[in-house]
Simulated scan of single mutants.
Amino acid sequence: MIIRTQSLHGRISGDANLDGPQKFHTKIVPRIGGLAIVLGVFIPIALFDQGNTNEIDELFLLASILPGFGIGIVEDLAKSVSVKIRLLFISIGALVAIFLLGTSINHLDIPGIDYVIAIPAISMLFTVFAITGLTNAYNIIDGFNGLSSMIGLIALMVIGYVGILFSDSLIVLFSFTLFGAILGFFILNYPRGLIFLGDGGAYLIGFWVALLSILIVNRHTQISPWFAVMVNAYPILETLFTIYRRKYRQGKSPGHPDGLHFHSLIFRRILNSSHINSELEWFSANAKTSPYLWLFSSFAVIPAIFFWHSTPILIGF
């Protein structure tokens, strides 16, 4: 419906900035795909999953998602919300999750550090930092058709699989409900790029994956906290290197955009964008970029599937 009606709302919802350092599309495209995904999650859970033992936790989890998703959609429409304000709202959502769901990162299986992180105030701050960071990471890697959404699909599939191993109905429900909602978006986003995630969609996926990663470790002590790290290794590494590059190499704010992300370099140097001479070639190169990163992400995710219980092995990987 968003795609079919873009002539009515495209002036507001469309991504009309075609010249930015992280822009690799050639036409104005609706950037409110997150709205479709959130409806694809909230509606079925609200209509068909009432009266079960996890209902309160489900409501709390959905409530915690709203601040970050909401400010993301505002940015998609207004295109004027600062990075600091967006991160603030995501942090508020993280605090809501901590207080309502009682979940936090309280150990890393590293002697010494675990004593510090077990302190409630430090645990809370670290959890907010981790959730906010991974949420923003999904926005950072959202540079090419199918990239951020497929990374989210891979993470949710692995978390859902481990949830099945432990018969955890809440983890399974939230993993595969969002998986289905993203998949509906993905087939319209990749490879044709008919609709974009936007900040709202990227924040929704990133926050959801971050929260489930922490929840599954909290709910099952047999699972290593490094399982959560490995499942999200690619967006985490991209974000850390982005901060290092912008702040310490370029002397700029970490929120300042540039065109030196891993996906940008693959597009420019491996797919050789300097030799693109037509819109068809541009479209083809865009579509060919994301699979490189899907494979790269799998190098971390596959060990997490087999060694979810072993901190030493996961740290080694």
Rank of each mutant, 00 (worst) to 15 (best):
I2R: 10
I2Y: 13
I2L: 14
I3F: 05
Q6R: 15
Q6P: 01
S7D: 09
R11K: 15
R11T: 12
A16S: 15
L18E: 04
F24S: 05
R31I: 00
A36S: 10
I37H: 08
V38Q: 08
G40M: 12
V41I: 13
F42G: 13
F48S: 14
D49L: 14
Q50V: 10
Q50D: 08
E55S: 14
D57E: 13
E58W: 05
L62A: 11
A63W: 13
S64P: 10
S64T: 03
S64L: 02
I73D: 02
V74Y: 06
D76W: 12
A78L: 14
K79N: 10
S80I: 09
L88Q: 09
I90C: 00
I90T: 03
S91N: 05
G93E: 10
A94T: 00
A94H: 05
A94E: 07
I98H: 15
F99L: 11
F99P: 05
G102L: 13
G102A: 14
I105G: 13
N106H: 06
L108H: 01
L108Q: 02
I110Y: 04
I113D: 05
D114G: 07
D114P: 12
D114R: 11
I119P: 05
A121E: 03
L125S: 06
L134A: 10
N136R: 12
A137T: 03
I140P: 01
F144T: 02
N145E: 09
L147D: 00
L147E: 03
L147N: 14
L156W: 08
M157E: 04
G160E: 03
V162F: 02
G163S: 12
I164P: 02
S167P: 00
L170H: 10
V172F: 08
V172W: 07
V172Y: 08
L173Y: 02
F174W: 10
A181V: 00
I182C: 06
G184T: 03
F185Y: 07
F186M: 14
N189I: 05
N189Y: 02
P191F: 00
L194K: 15
F196V: 02
F196C: 03
F196K: 09
L197A: 01
G201F: 09
L204V: 05
V209S: 01
A210Y: 11
A210G: 15
L211C: 03
L212E: 06
S213D: 01
L215E: 02
I223D: 04
I223R: 12
S224Y: 10
S224I: 05
W226I: 00
A233E: 01
P235K: 07
L237T: 12
T239L: 08
T239S: 07
F241M: 11
F241D: 02
R245H: 11
R245S: 07
K247V: 06
Y248G: 00
Y248S: 05
Q250D: 13
G251D: 04
H256C: 06
P257T: 10
D258G: 06
F262L: 14
L265A: 09
R269D: 05
I270D: 00
S273G: 04
S274W: 12
H275F: 14
S278N: 12
L280A: 15
F283A: 03
A285S: 14
A287Q: 12
K288P: 07
K288N: 13
T289S: 09
T289H: 11
P291C: 11
Y292K: 09
A300R: 11
I302F: 13
P303I: 02
P303L: 09
F306P: 01
H309L: 06
S310N: 12
S310H: 10
T311G: 07
T311A: 15
P312S: 14
I313G: 01
I313C: 01
I315T: 07
